[in-house]
């Protein structure tokens, strides 16, 4: 079985991001970029499936700028077999990414697609679900366990208040939650081998996908700075302020 994994280039999770002065987006100049942590978990899961003999090939795909090749190399160093970069300059919205991934799926015919549940930059949590709907495949989102059983995959989902288990017919789409696995550290030999693994570069137009935006970004601004607290003289004043200023009690 072939497993397709989607990975996204995002700002490294340790970086404290700042909006651009004109509010047109997040300032990415000289900022450390990395593979989206949920995508890394997706790669790890696919590689484990391959190590268990369930998958025979792991193909990793990224839709993004030329530099997203670095994140594909990261995935290859973790054990993926080959990469596909769908080069797109503009910041694509989830629907456009899902359409591109659908085109890639139709060409690659994977038995299973694994994605992160969301990227830590946009936090949209849409691409996996949109992709499954576009393909007409089953979806198991927020996975904390993935077990392939014959022509089905059993996915344990982290839902509010507990765990839900679904069984999906393959091919299917799975999105990863934080507790699915702990990604390995790439070993030096695998880093060197990743250099020799192929990365195919294509563009949305070549896949016949229209990626024009359907939404408009109006602005990006930091959350308002937290105001300093005040000291109250007694409990009566505290209750008064909670009731009449903060309006948190009736």
């Amino acid at each position: 079985m072939k497993v397709l994994v989607a990975v996204k280039r995002v700002v490294d999770y340790n970086v404290k991001v700042r909006p651009k002065p004109d509010g047109s987006g997040v300032d990415l100049a000289n900022v450390k970029m990395a593979i989206n942590p949920f995508c890394e978990i997706a790669v790890e899961e696919a590689v484990r499936l391959k190590e268990r003999g369930v998958a025979d090939e792991v193909v990793v795909v990224s839709v993004g700028p030329t530099q997203a090749q670095e994140q594909l190399r990261t995935a290859l160093a973790l054990g993926a077999d080959r990469g596909i970069l769908v080069e797109a300059e503009a910041d694509l919205e989830p629907l456009a990414v899902a359409k591109v991934l659908k085109a890639v799926c139709e060409r690659e015919q994977p038995g299973l697609v694994i994605l992160g549940k969301q990227s830590i930059d946009g936090d949209n949590n849409q691409t996996g679900q949109l992709l499954a709907a576009l393909l007409g495949w089953g979806q198991g989102t927020f996975a904390s366990e993935v077990v392939v059983e014959g022509d089905r995959v059993r996915v344990t989902r982290e839902v509010d208040g507990g765990l839900q288990t679904v069984s999906l017919r393959l091919p299917a789409v799975v999105t990863t939650d934080l507790r699915l696995n702990e990604p390995r550290y790439a070993s030096l030999p695998n880093i060197m081998k990743a250099k020799k693994k192929p990365i195919e570069v294509t563009r949305p137009a070549e896949l016949g996908v229209d990626v024009a935006r359907r939404t408009e970004l109006l602005g990006v601004e930091p959350p308002p700075a937290r105001k300093g607290g005040i000291k109250v003289a007694d409990v009566a004043e505290l209750v008064d302020k909670l009731r009449n200023e903060a309006k948190v009690i009736g």
């Binding site: 990261t74 880093i191 060197m192 990743a194």
Partner: peptide, 15 residues
């Protein structure tokens, strides 16, 4: 090289 830099990143994260 790009590989050396990535290796450095992995080691840094591990440490």
């Amino acid at each position: 090289s790009e590989e050396d830099r990535y290796f450095r990143e992995v080691v840094r994260a591990w440490v």
